[in-house]
Simulated assay, not measured.
Amino acid sequence: MPATPPKQNMTDEQQAQMLQAIKTGLRWAAGEIAFDEVQWTLAKPRYGPIKRGIERVYRYEPAEATLEFAFNGNQSDDSHHPPKYFQLRVNGDLTTHITKENFESYLGLHRLVYGELIDGVRKEQGHFFSPGLGDFLGNRNRVGLSYRLPLAADSLFDVYVDISFEGRNDPPDYASLETADNMRSVTITRTYLTPAELDERRMADRQK
Rank of each mutant, 00 (worst) to 15 (best):
E166V: 15
E166N: 14
E166Y: 08
G167E: 04
N169D: 14
N169W: 12
D170Y: 03
D170G: 08
D170R: 10
P171M: 09
P171R: 04
P171V: 07
P172E: 06
P172D: 00
P172S: 06
P172T: 06
P172C: 02
D173I: 12
Y174D: 09
Y174Q: 08
A175E: 12
A175V: 15
A175D: 08
A175Q: 08
S176H: 07
S176A: 12
S176T: 12
L177S: 01
L177Q: 04
L177V: 05
E178N: 11
E178F: 10
T179E: 15
T179Y: 14
A180K: 05
A180E: 02
D181T: 00
D181Y: 03
D181P: 00
N182L: 09
N182I: 14
N182D: 15
M183R: 03
M183K: 02
M183F: 01
R184L: 11
S185A: 12
S185V: 11
S185E: 13
S185H: 07
V186D: 08
V186Q: 10
V186K: 12
V186L: 11
V186P: 06
V186Y: 11
T187E: 13
T187L: 14
I188E: 08
I188G: 04
I188Q: 11
I188S: 07
I188T: 09
I188L: 05
T191H: 04
T191V: 09
T191L: 07
T191Y: 06
Y192M: 03
Y192T: 00
Y192R: 05
Y192K: 01
Y192F: 04
L193K: 11
L193E: 02
L193S: 00
T194M: 07
T194A: 05
T194R: 05
T194P: 09
A196C: 02
E197V: 03
E197F: 04
E197H: 02
E197T: 01
E197M: 02
L198V: 10
L198T: 08
